[in-house]
């Protein structure tokens, strides 16, 4: 039996587009273009210069996922309560769901896709694999981006210190013990 392989994300994009077209046709009402405000942005994402036109309402998270197709960064709560969307902006970890893309003209953004160097995984990525620091994986990109930033922050040596510094990243599977072990291991080799 042969099935034409369709990428899962491609499938979602196609069906989402179809749905939105149908909705527009059905309602017969379109939002006046003048109602939304679009701005041009130039920024660096994972080391590459990127130009984007964004509606001012678009968060950095949605710009990364929907416009740049960088799906590694996850949308969990979309309200700053889970940490799944953590990325680095100018070297610091932030929540991409609570900041507007338009505020990042000229900024340097690193997502989980840009953490490896020349095909070599970041020490935190290596450690997460070695210590089996995830179950479903949904929070993992955020956990890894937070942990990678933590290596350069002031953080005490104990597991409790790591837990406190990582408290902004929730894991509903409860993979915390292995996450902490992975981070401690990565700190040892970084």
């Amino acid at each position: 039996m042969s099935i034409t392989p369709i990428d899962r994300l491609e499938f979602i994009r196609i069906t989402a587009a179809a749905t939105s077209v149908r909705k527009d046709t059905k309602s017969g009402v379109s939002v006046a273009p003048s109602a939304s405000v679009t701005r041009a942005l130039a920024l660096r994402v994972n080391g590459e210069a990127v130009r984007l036109d964004v509606d001012t309402r678009v968060t950095l998270l949605d710009a990364l996922r929907e416009q740049l197709q960088l799906f590694g960064t996850k949308k969990g709560c979309d309200h700053g309560q889970c940490g799944a969307c953590t990325v680095h902006v100018n070297g610091r970890r932030v929540l991409s769901c609570l900041t507007l893309a338009v505020m990042h003209d000229d900024d340097d953004i690193i997502t989980v896709e840009g953490l490896e160097r020349n095909g070599v995984l970041h020490p935190v990525q290596e450690a997460f694999i070695e210590r089996d620091a995830f179950q479903c994986g949904y929070c993992t990109a955020g956990q890894i981006m937070s942990a990678a930033a933590l290596l350069n922050e002031s953080c005490g040596p104990s597991d409790d210190d790591v837990r406190e510094q990582m408290s902004g990243n929730l894991c509903r599977c409860g993979a915390y013990p292995n996450i902490v072990a992975a981070i401690q291991s990565a700190r040892g080799r970084a």
């Binding site: 700053g80 929540l95 609570l98």
Partner: peptide, 9 residues
């Protein structure tokens, strides 16, 4: 208060 990410912002 908050988390390291939020305190950075």
């Amino acid at each position: 208060g908050a988390s390291a990410q939020l305190r950075n912002m």
